[in-house]
């Protein structure tokens, strides 16, 4: 069996890739996929730790996190579709109606 630190390092890397992606991507769909990557990196951490401690709760938390992520996806995609209907573009840089 691989030591738990391998999983933790991998998930930290995935989380970082996701976080950097959110900051540099211009398309909300891509941003959104990066956020999903972050959440799934966390899920990996939970599963690895839960398995390492021999506990069920770490793996149970993943179910919660998946359910919440699914609810977020449905709302997020709904918002993106609504925006596309009104302005035929979803690029984040076009969303600049409000400035201080």
């Amino acid at each position: 069996m691989l030591p738990v630190s391998y999983y933790l390092i991998l998930s930290a890397l995935l989380f970082t890739i996701g976080a950097v992606g959110v900051l540099i991507k211009k398309n909300p769909i891509q941003t959104f996929m990066c956020i999903e990557l972050m959440l799934n990196a966390v899920n990996l951490t939970f599963i690895a730790l839960g398995r390492y401690f021999g506990q069920m709760n770490g793996q149970m938390y993943v179910i919660f996190s998946l359910a919440v992520a699914a609810a977020e996806v449905s709302v997020g995609l709904g918002i993106i579709v609504a925006i596309f209907r009104t302005r035929e573009s979803i690029v984040v840089d076009d969303a600049n109606l409000m400035k201080s």
Partner: peptide, 26 residues
Amino acid sequence: PRSEEAALKYFLLGAFAAGFLLYGIA
């Protein structure tokens, strides 16, 4: 458009923050 833009910004940053919150909990 302003309301939709607010929703998109709030959603993207809120979901981003949720990722940090969950990783912190892990």
